[in-house]
Simulated assay, not measured.
Amino acid sequence: MIAYEVAGNGPPLLLLHGFPQTRAMWRPMVPALTNRFTVVTADLRGYGQSGKPAATQDMSFRLMAQDMVALMAALGHHRFHVVGHDRGARTAHRMALDHPDAVLSLTVMDIVPTEHLLTHMSTGIAKAYYHWLFLAQPFPFPETMIGHDPDAYFERCLLGFGKASLEDFDPDLLAEYRSAWRDPACIRAMCDDYRAAIEIDWDHDRNDLSRKVTCPSLVLYGEDGAMAHLLDVPATWQDRLSDMRHTAIEGGHFFPDQSPKATTDALIKFLTSL
């Protein structure tokens, strides 16, 4: 079961959140988009109000992408624009590779390709993104540690990937995130998401190194984020996207929360230019 909301009129636009958030993250941006697009926001499997798979292999980006293609088809949208932040961006990238006929355009927010991140895991990257390795540890170690104080752990995640403070996050949205991540089934699913990235998705991406996303693509990233400090983010995408544009947005990894207007403006500029 995939939880979702629909608003607006116009070409279909799918918005996918990342870790450790839910579809609520897009709420500040949706009003400015609904004048031009039919906006669909959805919780990834394992997150928010969507179903919680019981096995690591059920949390791959390939299956997350299939969920969303099926959801959009059920809503009558067989071709659509997709925008993703964090895990949602990785899902969107996999979707553009596996379902090129469905994806009109791809926007990824503050990620480098999964294969690149894991293959070139430097000391700096491992320190900044330690959660990739912690969450991927065998069940139930990370689940047990996080379960003692989910708010403390996940709020640290919101603040730990580049410039951010709790005041950057809308209090009502924070309350929704807390409600979701306090659920032990959600904690387990999020850990399985990161286990799957190493155990499943890495192989999928290595097998697809010769393939490029062919639709128009936009790479957005936080100018103060950990990845921007450690890597040339657009360069990591150069040989993976056939038609790429890129823009840095003020803020860290969670720049959509910190700079929603600038993020929305960049999206509208890109999408209306196509």
Rank of each mutant, 00 (worst) to 15 (best):
residue 130 Y to R: 13
residue 245 R to M: 10
residue 142 P to L: 02
residue 15 L to R: 00
residue 89 A to G: 13
residue 68 M to T: 01
residue 23 R to M: 13
residue 41 T to A: 00
residue 168 D to F: 06
residue 131 H to I: 08
residue 85 H to M: 11
residue 250 E to Q: 14
residue 122 S to M: 12
residue 7 A to P: 02
residue 194 Y to T: 01
residue 273 S to M: 12
residue 99 H to N: 12
residue 64 M to P: 00
residue 79 R to V: 13
residue 70 A to K: 14
residue 234 P to R: 01
residue 65 A to W: 02
residue 20 P to S: 08
residue 227 M to L: 15
residue 73 A to I: 05
residue 217 S to C: 10
residue 128 A to F: 04
residue 38 T to P: 01
residue 122 S to F: 10
residue 181 W to V: 09
residue 266 A to S: 11
residue 169 F to D: 07
residue 71 L to S: 01
residue 197 A to C: 15
residue 15 L to T: 02
residue 48 G to Q: 03
residue 188 R to P: 03
residue 220 L to N: 04
residue 33 L to P: 00
residue 19 F to W: 11
residue 121 M to A: 15
residue 148 H to M: 15
residue 136 A to K: 09
residue 118 L to R: 07
residue 222 G to Q: 07
residue 90 R to S: 02
residue 40 V to K: 01
residue 192 D to T: 11
residue 207 N to M: 14
residue 113 P to F: 04
residue 136 A to L: 10
residue 222 G to E: 04
residue 50 S to P: 08
residue 75 L to T: 05
residue 255 F to C: 02
residue 215 C to M: 14
residue 180 A to Q: 00
residue 78 H to I: 11
residue 272 T to H: 13
residue 190 M to G: 09
residue 5 E to R: 11
residue 10 G to F: 04
residue 178 R to V: 02
residue 115 E to P: 07
residue 246 H to D: 14
residue 30 V to F: 04
residue 14 L to I: 09
